[in-house]
């Protein structure tokens, strides 16, 4: 199977994730879309690793997974706290910093 197809899939997934981040209001969905983009990047890393025949890409993918896991912990906690205090998970509602 041609490994280039994985590249197209990764690009598709990244675009989907980016669109989700920019267009959706629900913080949980935005968060999921970010995960989607991270995983698209992981897929790219792994694909390139395979194409070039070395392991560096796969090692990078593990790093990204670890960082993503840490991010989920912190991010979800923030989202839950925001939801508790404001009874809404919309990212547009949390706009207290604007002038």
């Amino acid at each position: 199977m041609n490994p280039e197809n994985y590249l197209y899939l990764a690009a598709l997934l990244f675009t989907l994730g980016a669109c989700g981040v920019l267009l959706r209001r629900n913080a949980i969905v935005v968060f999921m879309c970010i995960e989607l983009m991270l995983n698209a990047a992981n897929l790219l890393l792994v694909t390139f690793s395979r194409m070039h025949g070395n392991l560096e890409g796969q090692i990078m993918a593990f790093f990204v997974m670890v960082v993503a896991a840490a991010e989920v912990v912190v991010g979800l906690a923030i989202i839950v706290m925001v939801y508790r205090s404001r009874h809404s998970a919309s990212v547009d509602d949390a706009s207290l910093m604007k002038l």
Partner: peptide, 17 residues
């Protein structure tokens, strides 16, 4: 320039992208 700072996270994301 101040108007750019509208407080909506998504618009910041757009400028980043």
């Amino acid at each position: 320039l101040r108007r750019v700072q509208n407080g909506f996270a998504r618009s910041y994301a757009v400028s980043m992208f």
